[in-house]
Design a protein around this nucleic acid. Structure first.
Lengths: 126, 126
DNA sequence: CGGGATCCTAGTGGATACTG
DNA sequence: CAGTATCCACTAGGATCCCG
């Protein structure tokens, strides 16, 4: 498993040191619509390999972004779900989509229910 | 100079293929408050090296995220500024800051004028 | 099905010295 | 000042095969 140490106390640099690698945010995208299994990630169009997927999921679990549930079945089954901390990154993903749809015309427009979705703890200030 | 080809037509994956490396968003952070010179980036706490900085700035210029202005002086002087396309990523940086300040307590709180700043073309729909 | 074990590449980053 | 030019190290990421 591979994680990065924060380079500074800057919120942007620190966040990027956690989720700013080549795959973490793509995995989170797959998890927005709910739980997913190992083989379902592999089916995404970006074609992540088993090796990297294992590595990223383990790091994300340790960082508290996802939870891995195991079921006692035959053959064994696992499911990955976003934690609240992970879900709270949804606005970032939505902003990225808006930006891409404006400046990179060859990208899909995400489904409406994704762009309208709201995460639980908006801003608890005051 | 190093750029990545998009892995898919997904807006998230495509955007990450452009700005999702270890340095691009950190450089953009430095540019939010206005123009910067080469040596000013080097002074940031994350300690980027000249080699990597040159590489990233060139890629960002080719991607239309920054403009490099040169002045005919002695010694020669250059300035880097965000384009409108680059500035439009500001909401992403702000969301990242909000997220970090909530879930990664050891990070700074950015100055208020940064979090309140708005980019020109909000959403021109309807 | 959900990985682990291996081995390998190439992208990323770093140190140092030099130049227009 | 603002880079180039080398050379080098590390590791994220990939290919392939194997296993409980």
């Amino acid at each position: 498993m591979t994680r990065r140490e924060p380079r500074s106390a800057c919120p942007i640099a620190t966040t990027l040191d956690m989720v700013g690698d080549r795959w973490t945010m793509v995995i989170m995208r797959d998890l927005i619509c709910g739980k997913k299994r190992f083989s379902q990630f592999l089916a995404s169009p970006e074609r992540i390999t088993t090796n990297v997927l294992t590595d990223r999921l383990a790091a994300m679990e340790e960082d508290g972004l996802v939870i891995r549930r195991s079921y006692q079945e035959r053959p064994k089954r696992y499911e990955y779900v976003l934690t609240e901390k992970g879900e709270a990154l949804l606005p970032v993903l939505q902003d990225i989509c808006r930006w891409a749809n404006r400046y990179m015309p060859d990208t899909w427009t995400p489904p409406d229910h994704f762009m309208r979705k709201r995460t639980g703890g908006g801003d608890a200030s005051s």
